[in-house]
Amino acid sequence: MASFEYNENKQRVLFGPHSLSKLPSELARLGCSKPLILTTPTKTSYVDDIATLLNGQIAGSFTRVTMHTPADVTEDALKHCQSVDADCLVSIGGGSAVGLGKALFVRTGLPHVCVPTTYAGSEMTPIVGQTENRVKTTHVDPKAIPAVVIYDVILTLTLPPKMSATSGLNAMAHAVEALYAQDGNPIASMFAIRGIQALASSLPRIVQNNDDVDARSDALLGAWFSGKCLAGVSVSLHHKLCHVLGGTFNLPHAETHAIILPHALAYLAPSIPDAMRVLAENIPNSGGNAVDGLNRLLSTLGITYSLKDLGMNEEDIDVAVATLLKKPFWSPRPLDGNLLRELLRRAWEGKPAQVAE
């Protein structure tokens, strides 16, 4: 077997229905008593829920969590955190809330407990993102992985079916890229395969029955496994392109990842035959072709194929390609501007992904 390195980080994970009830004991274990609660403007009820759970013992809340972690929002959150003298951070919500928690941890060193209510997987990664002047950048800080993750499946039951589907495909993208990562290894591949299996089987069940607790538990587990992939290996075309689309045009994160997933895979397919075989074996209804399998999965889940539907303009295609190529990155297939424009044009028009030879 080829040599490889695998680095694990200290993190405590609580998984199961009603596991949020263990938050008080987890904060006590960390020696914390004044958490700052981080969430989005649409999820302020979580602040009340946590305050009740903690008998009102919170430092305060910051409810202006914003997609793609804008630098000015992070600075405002930092000032608020310092003004209320918080001794820890509790992020509750999707990847944006977790992302802000990680950004604040880097600046303050305060323990971070996160409670994911979507399938983003950010809670498992050391990746810290920021958007400034329409440019999204990321860096890796191994210490930024949250100290505690609470996966309470009951909290995901209010996530609408379409949002569940796009969030799950966002998580699946982490696993798909792990199978052909430059620094891939058998451990990451094991997480990837298990994550893909769990998400590909659970998401259609969730769309059919939003209250299927077993399906939602499987999806959370799949998100956990997929997040571990993103924590353990580097990313390539899919994530780099989605960062450009999200940071430059402010396209919604999960929906963009869902649309781009089969297209990025189709672009790379000729150069990653082994990964394509593994994917075809683990994505239902692939018929031996992983790209076709992903196209069918998007159709089954009722997800739009079109970046135009997300608000992207046609003239943005050239801007996106030029921005992507400004900062070279490793790709299993060389980056060709013309082929990338064709990839984005198909995604913009809403056409199914097609392997580019």
Rank of each mutant, 00 (worst) to 15 (best):
A2N: 04
S3T: 07
E5K: 05
E5L: 07
N7Y: 08
N7A: 01
N9V: 13
L14E: 09
L14N: 00
K22Q: 15
P24D: 06
P24S: 12
G31I: 13
K34C: 08
T44C: 10
T44S: 12
Y46N: 11
I50S: 01
N55K: 15
G56I: 07
F62L: 08
R64P: 00
R64H: 13
V73E: 10
A77S: 02
H80M: 10
V84S: 03
D85E: 14
G101Y: 01
R107E: 03
R107K: 15
G109F: 03
G109W: 07
L110S: 05
V113H: 00
Y119E: 00
G121M: 06
S122N: 00
T125L: 01
V128D: 00
Q130L: 10
E132D: 07
N133I: 05
V135I: 14
K136S: 04
K143Y: 01
I145Y: 01
Y151I: 01
V153I: 08
L155F: 00
T156Y: 01
T158V: 06
P161C: 04
G168V: 06
L169W: 04
A171T: 09
M172L: 15
H174T: 04
V176P: 05
A178M: 09
A178R: 08
L179S: 09
A188W: 06
M190Q: 11
M190S: 15
F191E: 01
I196Q: 07
A198V: 06
A198M: 13
A198T: 03
L199R: 07
A200Q: 07
S201W: 09
L203T: 06
P204M: 13
R205N: 11
I206G: 07
V207L: 09
V213R: 15
V213P: 05
A215P: 06
S217D: 13
D218E: 15
D218G: 11
D218Y: 14
G222Q: 08
G222F: 11
G222L: 11
S226E: 08
K228E: 15
G232L: 15
V233I: 14
V235N: 11
L237R: 13
H238A: 10
H238C: 10
L241F: 09
C242T: 14
G246L: 04
F249H: 02
P252V: 01
H253C: 08
H253Y: 03
A254V: 10
T256K: 00
L261P: 02
P262Y: 10
A264K: 06
A264P: 02
A266M: 04
A269T: 14
A269Y: 12
P270Y: 08
S271N: 10
I272Q: 09
P273Q: 05
P273K: 11
D274L: 11
V278S: 00
E281H: 02
N282L: 07
N282P: 03
P284F: 11
G288E: 04
V291E: 05
L294G: 04
N295H: 12
R296W: 07
M312R: 00
D316S: 12
D316E: 06
A320N: 03
A322R: 14
A322P: 00
W330C: 02
W330Q: 06
P334T: 09
G337E: 13
N338Y: 10
L339G: 14
L340R: 02
L340T: 03
R341Y: 05
L343E: 03
W348E: 03
W348S: 02
P352K: 12
P352E: 12
Q354K: 15
A356W: 12
E357M: 14
